[in-house]
Design a protein around this nucleic acid. Structure first.
Lengths: 199, 199
DNA sequence: ACTAACGTGTTAGCGACTAACATAAAGGAG
DNA sequence: CTCCTTTATGTTAGTCGCTAACACGTTAGT
């Protein structure tokens, strides 16, 4: 077996080309007004190649999955910590790891998603997975079944807080501090802000 | 002007026929496997007539909008009441008004929606509207702007509680008490259960 | 009775997506 | 080096949701 496969590079290059042309066209003329055929043509491939790399048109916009990172961070929280606080701190750390690098990218893509019904529908589906992940991690921490209603509600509420903060951030002019908005959102759920959390 | 318009009756009959045949077919062979053309044929109309009555295929399943009722009920809550408590009580009353009549219908349709990605996507969109309605009503009660982050988070959390309760209910064998599940869900958010609420 | 309004049908077309089959080029086995 | 398999891509044709344009007939008010 060869691991230096140059085919992988070519395939990855095609994928990147499709994605870049797609995002460029979406921002230029809108998501709905941009045809898969147009994207494929711009990237110099056929529409079948598009669908081999991205199973649906929306997939080309879906962001990288931060769920594994979040799962780790929640699992790393101290055992006795309140569920909402645990998720709050985990999100805190995740944002600290992601934002400095990807802030602008995340902002642009979030705005595109929020402004496009078809993309929002997909995002809700992804959030469902994140909510289940929150619930699963919380249940493991407390050693109860993952069907526990209390923890499922807290997981959903925590995600609602994060989502509300991000939406507020993306709806604004972009100068707001997302981390501060997340703190404020969790504070609304009764989670005290920890000013010593930055390290 | 005639108000006994018999055309309205005929139109309503066609609409009802389409809806009934659609739900029957969806339950029999699944939503995706049922074609609009099939539904139209079963109802004895053309596919265009289907789309004149229901703008999208999913619309045939979307439940009646309970938002106006909820808006009223929230507005009727006493001014000093905690936001989550206000929504909790409003939902309580709404369920008391709806469940005795439509319990079975709601259960069947909820299960269909939960098991069909395309329908879930639509439902999320409707929930977005409900969440905004919660936030707007809460903001009016407290006399603040409806962009207030704290109230938007609480509205989203409250809706998450309701949704989690309904999902748990529909996932079970149907013998569970939805009202009790809603109470439990709000209790997880720190809202005390009021045993004197039934009147 | 004439005419405007309205519910419906017909036809044609677009765009997302899939399946079947073809092709060309790279990698490995002998 | 040659044969054969693998793999990324192309071609073509089709399904399905959905829309637009236009025609037709029945009903409702003048």
């Amino acid at each position: 077996m060869t691991r230096a496969d140059w085919r992988e590079q070519k395939k990855a290059a095609t994928r990147r080309a499709i994605q870049e042309h797609a995002l460029r066209l979406f921002l230029a003329k809108g998501y709905e007004a941009t045809t898969v055929e147009e994207i494929a043509a711009a990237a110099g491939v056929s529409h079948m190649t598009f669908f081999r790399h991205f199973p649906r048109k929306e997939a080309v916009v879906e962001s990288d999955d931060y769920d594994p990172l979040l799962a780790e961070l929640i699992a790393a929280r101290p055992a006795g910590e309140d569920p909402l606080t645990a998720i709050h701190r985990a999100v805190h750390h995740a944002l600290a790891a992601v934002l400095p690098e990807d802030r602008e990218t995340v902002l642009v893509r979030t705005r595109l998603v929020l402004g496009t019904p078809a993309l929002r529908a997909r995002q809700w589906q992804n959030q469902d997975a994140t909510r289940d992940l929150f619930a699963t991690e919380l249940a493991r921490r407390e050693g109860v079944a993952e069907t526990d209603l209390r923890l499922r509600v807290l997981a959903a509420a925590a995600l609602a807080a994060v989502t509300t903060a991000i939406t507020t951030w993306a709806d604004g002019d972009g100068t707001a501090d997302l981390v501060a908005l997340v703190d404020e959102a969790f504070a609304a759920l009764g989670v005290p802000v920890d000013h010593a959390v930055r390290r």
